[in-house]
Design a protein around this nucleic acid. Structure first.
Length: 565
RNA sequence: CGGGGUGUAGCGCAGUUUGGUUAGCGCGCGUGUUUUGGGAACACGAGGUCGCCGGUUCGAAUCCGGCCACCCCGACCA
């Protein structure tokens, strides 16, 4: 491809509303353009990278025994109603009606569609196992798209779904997918950490997320430096340390705390530390109020709490709902005399003489002890693990890192097949539910991820495997006939040999072309310049700018060696 | 959905506080000349419904009201 013909508008300056490195570089280098919030167009360079990633995924998926197909992006609403996920996922569903008034959603994921396909076409155990995948745009009305390709409303995903007879067969395919994923990310040049994760709205415990560790990531990952345990903060387990001081219990007292409704304000007012306070969070679990009690400096893990309650919906109560069940305004709730079910984080049980809200405006209770709290208190782990908490297996303090989720595999089991009644006839003639797994990779997010971690001040740095072109050939001065003639010959030679080469034949100053080449990030650069008079070109890499003079006859072999390595 | 911010040429910005000639600057773009190894110089030139709608006014990029879009933080996030 000749740069003079390539549609790759590069920018010198970063558009003002861009913050994330990968976003800025992909825009500047002419890989993507924005259509709207979380909606991007892939320009030729971006599209090439996306396809390189897709091809690697295809190769690994096919090797693992999965079969590619293409499902409909338009999904009938009734399937979502049937699976019971229309409600839980209503926030992100983008819907429309056809001319007859039938409702549809643009596919945010394809469990319903594929399970419907399979239940209509699979009858017998002889038809199993099946592992089907596709690479297709997904549509989710994300509450907050961000970071360019990191979180989009329209994004490219590889999604695979396995269908098996029993758990043992599911385990087999799950493990095979794990291996395939490891291979995919390795081939894309990414250093990925697999972590224990939460099944999210679907549920399920056996699930792994494939995280790219980067400060730009949206997730928190807790890692044990000793045993290698790694988990998403949402589900990370840790050892409870008994922090009870053995202080003598004092007499509870009511104090005025005008205007102090946040933990910081109360602490400032009472000259206390956040860990001496227990905050009482009122939540609505399937529309019934419950109270969660956690130490003032901790955060409630709502996902864990929801699972504990067995609730399908859990959300923070509104000020009105809080007033209705506590009798006080938001910010002054407390467990003493509270008439809603109380759930206390296990860490709070060892506390004495703590501070809580008084369930009335502008007042708190101090020197409270658990004996003051009438009523049943359920103790459970309700808070997130944080940096410094101890690994449950080896008592080593966790390190906390940011991660960007690139892939997710998990065992759906019967979560979808049961409501959709996807069954098969087993050997003994009995009808059984198909057991399922699902496996996703954010293809477009991989592009963002690699761009995020692989760059320098001059631009992107692509690994050979997914670079838009393997080689960038630069003719330093196209008005120099010797240079131009040599560059043209080198271009022909490389193209004929099947090397993917972007040939900068523009009539610009050399500096412009060097800058663009670095920005685009092609891993190998071949410069035809002053040495053309001697019949030589310079070959260098994007990372190591040490130029190696190479005679014309040896250029192809040199390039091929670099591409291969 | 809550909080904060921004909308003026393809990109980056000034001008808005205090309304007043023909709305500026840099980059980029076009033509020409000179240049040609790390984003060249000079000359000439093109390019704008000042986010949209309404209002106030003799007069609105500027003041007022409403709306929209985008970004960031939070909530949310198979």
């Amino acid at each position: 491809m000749r740069s003079s013909r390539l549609f790759a508008p590069t920018l010198r300056e970063v558009p003002s509303d861009v913050e994330m490195t990968s976003h800025a570089l992909l825009l500047r280098a002419g890989f993507i353009r924005q259509m709207g919030a979380g909606v991007y167009e892939f320009l030729p360079l971006g599209w090439r990278v996306l396809n390189k990633v897709s091809d690697i995924i295809r190769d690994e998926m096919d090797k693992s025994g999965a079969q590619e197909l293409l499902l409909s992006a338009i999904q009938p609403e009734e399937l979502w109603a049937e699976s019971g996920r229309e409600g839980p996922m209503s926030d992100v569903l983008i819907g429309f009606q056809d001319r007859r008034g039938t409702k549809y959603y643009l596919g945010p994921t394809h469990e319903e569609i594929i399970t419907d396909l399979v239940r209509k076409n699979v009858r017998s155990y002889r038809d199993l196992p099946l592992n089907l995948y596709q690479i297709q745009m997904k549509y989710r009305d994300e509450p907050r798209p961000r970071g360019g390709l990191v979180r989009c409303r329209e994004f490219l995903m590889k999604d695979a779904y396995s269908f098996d007879r029993d758990e043992a067969a599911l385990d087999t395919v799950y493990n095979r997918m794990y291996e395939a994923y490891v291979n995919v990310f390795k081939r894309c040049g990414m250093d990925i950490t697999a972590v224990d994760a939460s099944g999210g709205a679907i549920g399920g415990k056996e699930t792994k997320e494939f995280m790219l560790l980067t400060d730009a990531g949206e997730d928190s990952v807790l890692m044990c430096p000793k045993c290698g345990y790694a988990a998403n903060q949402e589900i990370a387990d840790f050892r409870l340390v008994d922090a009870s001081t053995g202080d003598e219990k004092k007499q509870m007292a009511r104090v005025d705390t005008p205007g102090a409704h946040t933990v910081d304000e109360v602490c400032g007012f009472l000259k206390a530390k956040p860990n001496q306070l227990i905050k009482t969070l009122i939540l609505m679990a399937d529309d019934k109020p419950v109270a969660a009690l956690v130490r003032g400096d901790r955060d409630l893990n709502e996902g864990r709490f929801r699972v504990l309650l067995g609730a399908s919906k859990l959300e923070m109560a509104t000020p009105e709902q809080i007033a209705a069940c506590t009798g006080g305004p938001i910010g002054f709730s407390g467990p003493v005399g509270l008439k809603v079910p109380l759930y206390a984080d296990e860490e709070t049980l060892g506390m004495v003489n703590f501070i809580v809200g008084a369930n009335e405006g502008d007042a708190h209770l101090v020197d409270v002890n658990w004996c003051d709290v009438a009523g049943k208190v359920t103790s459970a782990r309700l808070r997130f693990a944080v940096s410094g908490d101890l690994c449950e297996k080896c008592d080593e303090p966790f390190e906390e890192k940011r991660g960007m989720e690139m892939g997710h595999i998990f065992k759906l089991k019967y979560a979808i097949s049961e409501p959709l009644n996807a069954v098969y006839t087993d050997e003994d003639g009995s009808e059984k539910l198909i057991i399922m797994g699902c496996y996703g990779i954010g293809v477009s997010r991989i592009v963002a991820g690699v761009a995020e971690v692989s760059n320098d001040d001059n631009g992107l740095i692509w690994p050979v495997s997914i670079a838009p072109y393997q080689v960038q050939l630069i003719c330093a001065n196209v008005t120099d006939e010797t240079q131009l003639a040599l560059a043209e010959r080198v271009y022909e030679t490389l193209v004929q040999a099947g090397v993917e080469v972007l040939y900068d034949d523009r009539n610009d100053r050399a500096g412009v072309k060097f800058k663009d080449a670095d920005l685009i990030g092609t891993p190998i650069q071949v410069v035809v310049g002053k040495l053309a008079a001697e019949g030589k070109a310079e070959i260098r890499t994007r990372v190591d700018k040490t130029a190696e003079p190479v005679a014309e006859a040896d250029i192809l072999a040199n390039v091929q060696a670099r591409v291969g390595g």
